[in-house]
């Protein structure tokens, strides 16, 4: 087995409780949402709203990444990790990849549930005398994907940066971490207008003419509009922040 795979599987097993718990809670909430529809009803149950809650689990991911580094130091297992004949960047990347995997699994499950709820809603539309719903499962997937992955990239990037920073700053590490996060957010929002000027990526309205479910689109679903420049900017800032953390870990991590 190669070293990368070994480290990655170790990280998955190390966080197995959350890797089981969060997807299970997601599936449970989605089932509650889907099963809340009753035959013949014309108004969806309020329980259908539970289908969007699992997206908030993305907030757990940065804490999980930082916790993963902190646990190594607390358990003194960083002695073992740092003495392995692999680059520290590889150790860092394995941790980030494991948490990203959990994020992607949660996204896939959440979106599958949301699409199931959406299908139920579309079936209810004629009963409620509502026009055909003007967006498709692809619109939902692209919109939620762009939002979720943007948030995940930015937050995991900041978490990676904080994890690296904590190895350098021994005193006032919490303060330095807060300053780092605020700095990244300042750069992120401060450069957003310029980036929109530099990069002219299309938005997802291009997809609106494509209807993979056969539903005729009679109006623009403006509330699902998202510019891909926003997504690209989040990805770049997140990766840059993660890169800082990885560099600090490579250069400064020690037992």
């Amino acid at each position: 087995m190669n070293t990368w795979k070994t480290l990655y599987i170790k990280e998955i097993k190390d966080n197995r409780t959350l890797f089981i718990l969060l997807p299970s809670v997601t599936v449970f909430l989605e089932l509650v949402a889907v099963l809340s529809f009753e035959d013949g009803q014309s108004i969806p149950s309020a329980h259908a709203l539970w289908s969007v809650v699992p997206y908030s689990f993305v907030l757990v991911l940065p804490f999980l990444l930082i916790h993963s580094f902190a646990q190594e130091i607390k358990g003194q297992t960083h002695y073992l990790l740092l003495s392995l004949p692999v680059s520290r960047a590889q150790v860092f990347a394995a941790k980030a990849a494991a948490v990203t995997t959990l994020g992607l699994v949660l996204f896939a499950l959440s979106t599958a549930g949301l699409i199931a709820v959406f299908s139920e809603l579309r079936a209810l539309a004629p009963l409620a005398d509502v026009q055909s719903i003007p967006f498709t499962t692809m619109h939902i997937s692209v919109f939620t994907g762009a939002c979720y992955l943007s948030a995940m990239a930015l937050m995991l990037g900041m978490a990676g940066g904080v994890a690296g920073l904590k190895l350098v700053v021994r005193r006032f590490a919490g303060l330095a971490s807060a300053a780092f996060v605020l700095g990244v957010l300042y750069c992120y929002f401060g450069t957003l207008p310029e980036v929109f000027g530099w990069i002219d990526l299309p938005d997802n309205s291009l997809l609106w003419s494509d209807s993979n479910s056969g539903v005729q689109v009679s109006m623009s679903p403006e509330f699902l509009k998202i510019n891909f420049t926003f997504f690209a900017h989040s990805l770049i800032v997140g990766l840059a922040s993660m890169g800082i953390g990885m560099w600090l870990f490579e250069k400064r991590a020690e037992a």
Partner: peptide
């Protein structure tokens, strides 16, 4: 090292297999 650097959640055999991969 002076400290115990092993993962508490691993079996002894798993710990050795983990190291053997490197």
């Amino acid at each position: 090292p002076e400290v115990s650097p092993f993962y508490d959640w691993m079996l002894v055999s798993e710990q050795l297999e983990f190291l053997a991969a490197f």
